[in-house]
Simulated scan of single mutants.
Amino acid sequence: MTEVHHEDVAAYALGLLSEEEQAAFERHLDGCGLCAGEVGSFAAMGELIKGVHPDDLLPQPADPQVESLLVRRAAAERRRRRFHRSFMTAAACLVVAAGVFLGVSSLTGEPNPDSIHSPARDLLMTGRTYAITDPATGVAGVVGLEDKGWGTHVALELKGVKGPLQCRLTAFGDDGRSEVVASWGVPEKGYGVPGSPDPLVLHGGTSLPQTELNHFTIQTTDGRILATVAV
């Protein structure tokens, strides 16, 4: 005959007994109100340890009590949380690294892999745009504008320019004020020309409100005007 102990209530509630032991304990429950009352409590605790993979468990201690099972479950959860935090930290580092790479690429004049969905591209697609064409210099492109609380967000797409040059985009207001919106270097191969068909795309800003803007100039640092666009 299988020997039954009161302590087996936890193992019974968690389904850890053999079929013979389970049958014996069920007979014990018929005459033991104490164990019968505790089965429900231990069964509820059992929900906490469902789905634990054997690999998640710590080495089995000598005394297989519910407390040890819950401790192992808590340890497994802590390991999962540590892994999750480590994973999210690594992902955040990758995002930051990608942002740094894109920023450096735009500053060094290297192709920007995100140029299709860059803030400059978005503005040229959604903002108010003005075309640039100067037959004398061969420079062409588009200026895009959108209102901001601090002034005007400005985007530029530029084609037909060869280097090496140092250039700047300058905004002029109706009152004669002027502000440099952006400055950049043009490599020898140029932008939007045979052999280098991709345009230059960049963005910047001016404190001048869009309603007070008069025109923009694209010029070299030595004062040569490459193009002018009225707004």
Rank of each mutant, 00 (worst) to 15 (best):
M1P: 10
H5M: 15
H6C: 10
D8K: 10
V9C: 06
A11N: 08
Y12P: 06
Y12R: 03
A13F: 04
G15E: 03
L17A: 06
S18K: 09
S18I: 08
E20R: 10
Q22P: 01
F25S: 01
F25W: 06
E26R: 01
E26F: 02
R27P: 07
R27A: 09
H28G: 08
L29Y: 02
G31A: 11
L34G: 12
C35M: 02
C35P: 00
G37I: 12
G40A: 15
S41L: 15
S41T: 14
F42I: 09
A43C: 03
M45N: 14
L48A: 05
P54A: 12
D55N: 14
D55W: 10
D55Y: 07
L57A: 09
P59A: 03
P61V: 11
D63K: 08
V66Y: 07
E67G: 04
S68W: 03
L69E: 01
L69F: 05
V71Y: 14
V71P: 00
V71N: 06
R73N: 05
A74W: 10
A75S: 08
A76C: 13
E77D: 14
R78G: 09
R79N: 10
R80G: 12
R81T: 09
R81S: 12
F83I: 13
H84E: 14
H84F: 11
A91V: 12
A91N: 12
L94P: 01
V95Q: 08
V96G: 13
A97T: 12
G99Q: 09
G99D: 10
V100W: 11
F101M: 06
G103I: 05
S106A: 09
T108H: 02
E110R: 14
N112P: 05
P113D: 06
S115M: 08
H117F: 13
P119C: 10
L124I: 02
M125A: 14
T126P: 09
T126I: 15
R128G: 12
Y130C: 08
Y130S: 07
A131G: 14
A131D: 10
T137R: 04
G138E: 04
G138M: 03
A140F: 09
L145S: 08
D147L: 03
T152M: 03
H153D: 07
G160R: 02
G160E: 03
V161C: 05
K162E: 03
G163Q: 04
G163P: 05
L169W: 04
F172Q: 00
F172R: 01
G173F: 01
D174S: 05
D174Y: 15
D175W: 02
E179K: 05
V180I: 06
S183F: 10
G185D: 11
G185I: 15
P187N: 07
E188H: 15
K189A: 05
S196D: 12
L200I: 11
V201P: 00
G204D: 00
T206K: 01
T206I: 03
L208I: 01
P209W: 00
Q210I: 02
E212D: 14
L213K: 02
H215I: 10
F216H: 07
T217P: 03
I218K: 13
Q219Y: 11
T221H: 13
G223H: 03
I225G: 04
A227T: 09
T228H: 11
V231A: 07
